[in-house]
Simulated scan of single mutants.
Amino acid sequence: MLDPTAVNHLPMPTPVFRFAPSPNGELHLGHALSAILNHDLARAAGGRFLVRIEDVDAARARPAFVAGILADLDWLGLAYERPPRFQSDHVADYRAAIDRLAAMGLVYPSFASRADVAEAVAAAERAVGRPAPRDPDGAPLHPGLDRDLDPTDAARRVAAGEPHALRLRMAEAAALAGPLAWDEAGAGPAGETGTVTADPLAWGDVVLARKDAPASYHLAVVVDDAAEGVTDVVRGRDLFHATAVHRLLQTLLGLPAPRYRHHGLVLGPDGRKLSKSLKSEGLAALRAAGATPADIRARLGLV
């Protein structure tokens, strides 16, 4: 069993904060809240403020959105260390991390399509007459398709170029890592704070990489945070439960554990969190309408 305490208390003399947007849309008020909090906390602690562009999903990333993100941060007056880190420059780092996990016997290729997974979940629900188990985000847990494929057959299919995802054998990974927790300076959805027990099993066999994305969010974020020496992760409360997966991967890979602070979300008129997919009003549009950086801070309660 790995010892998670070995990575929980490494010395972190210089606080390092980061803002890590994905360039698949415009920044909105929710992003502004996270960026400003990270910037201000870094300055108050005499630390560093970094920007990371999470563009590892090349199919969705757009150069125009990168330019827009950086322009918005400059307009908000948030000084960050340049140049920003681009995930697309570090694919080899993610591959190396996956190789380490694979060497532990914790990775398997899953050739099932999303339609295959949905069909298997629906069949299982019909068989037992109740909904399948869900992860903390409400999605059905992966039903384990291809988990027990013959390794020789799986390797042959991978070598032949058959589309697949790489998944983590969660039960084995959690058993190897042992009990996990993290230091929470903010609060979770139910008010969790302080030392929070991590439950990675709640997520099932998470994806580590796909053909169109060489690293999942879970994998890339822990590799990037360690590479940049991030000591404090400040992000939205919607990612609170995902921290369990991040603590698991940090422990398995021997990476340091940052302190975490999850903040409340900015909600739209319909009560849902702001989202690029919902085309929430962007900072650029607010700026064009005459808003100032001070107005943005006021709207976010950061005066």
Rank of each mutant, 00 (worst) to 15 (best):
Y260G: 12
A284P: 03
D295I: 11
K211R: 14
L141F: 01
A115R: 11
D55L: 03
L37H: 02
R126Y: 06
I53N: 03
R259Q: 09
S113W: 06
T197E: 10
A59V: 09
V221T: 15
S275C: 09
V221W: 14
V107R: 07
L29M: 12
A32H: 02
A44L: 09
P13C: 08
L300C: 04
D150N: 15
M1N: 07
G46C: 08
F17N: 08
L106V: 11
D116V: 06
A71E: 14
L252F: 01
D135Y: 02
E125L: 08
D150T: 13
D225C: 03
G282E: 00
K276D: 01
G268E: 15
V56W: 01
A102Q: 14
E81F: 01
N38F: 01
V7S: 12
L249R: 13
P151C: 14
L201I: 07
T251C: 14
A202L: 13
L106F: 09
E184Y: 06
V121K: 07
Q250S: 06
P200K: 08
V128Q: 14
L73W: 08
H31V: 04
T243M: 09
P293E: 07
R147K: 15
G229V: 00
V7W: 15
R147P: 03
A285K: 08
G268A: 15
A45M: 08
S22V: 01
A67D: 15
S34A: 15
A44Y: 06
P200A: 10
L302C: 01
A174G: 03
A132G: 08
L239N: 06
G254K: 02
D224A: 00
P133G: 05
A79Q: 13
D270M: 12
R60V: 05
D146S: 08
H241W: 11
D212L: 11
P15G: 12
L255P: 02
Y108G: 04
R156G: 11
L300H: 05
P269F: 13
W182M: 07
D89Y: 00
P109K: 07
L219Q: 00
R48C: 06
V121G: 09
A115W: 02
R52L: 00
G236H: 07
